[in-house]
């Protein structure tokens, strides 16, 4: 079978999706010209049918009216918003101050400052988290053996205050 393409050579994949080419290889210049005009105009009209279809079909609209739909806008369960430290009803958390998350962090966004408990053992003093340098890579959460930190599903993280980007995650010092 002769190749209908003018420029392209043989191809290894099927041409079912390629543009239909009606130009016979041995057609005269005039015939080529007219076939090109006809196929060209047909192709333009086909394209116009696609856009008008979208124009009259409201189901194709993908825009969401964002601030209005805030209530029904739920992020995925695994969404990585920011690092949060869940506290239970007594205001306690699971962090032991082992600094595994600090070591796992690729860009030093976590600083674990430990203090001494009255008994002389080390406990968590301050858990400093810097959202400004955090890349939300999830490595700290994976490193934590106690499930003390997790990723929040909050996504509106933009702020106008630089200070709000550095925060202390624990509300209380750690337990023994």
């Amino acid at each position: 079978m002769s190749n209908p393409r003018d420029i392209l050579g043989p191809q290894r994949f099927s041409q079912s999706h390629a543009a239909p080419k009606l130009i016979p290889p041995n057609a005269s210049v005039t015939k080529r010209y007219f076939i090109r005009v006809v196929t060209g105009v047909t192709s333009l009209l086909t394209g116009m049918r696609v856009t008008i279809g979208k124009f009259f079909d409201p189901r194709t609209t993908v825009t969401q009216q964002y601030p209005e739909n805030r209530d029904e806008l739920k992020m995925a369960e695994r969404f990585r918003g920011r690092v949060v430290m869940p506290h239970d009803a007594d205001g306690e958390h699971n962090c032991t101050g082992c600094t595994l998350c600090e070591k796992a962090c690729p860009n030093g966004s976590i600083s674990v400052l430990n203090t001494k408990h009255a008994s002389g053992r080390k406990i968590l003093g301050k858990y400093i988290y810097r959202l400004d340098s955090c890349t939300l890579c999830n490595l700290c959460i994976e490193a934590c053996p106690f499930g003390a930190i997790e990723m929040g599903t909050e996504f509106e993280l933009a702020t106008t205050r630089k200070e709000g980007l550095v925060e202390i995650l624990n509300k209380k010092a750690g337990r023994l």
């Binding site: 008008i52 979208k54 124009f55 194709t60 825009t63 009216q65």
Partner: peptide, 13 residues
């Protein structure tokens, strides 16, 4: 509006 609805958008609302 025409461009928006052809492009799956809503345009100014």
């Amino acid at each position: 509006k025409v461009s928006a609805h052809m492009q799956l958008r809503l345009g100014p609302m």
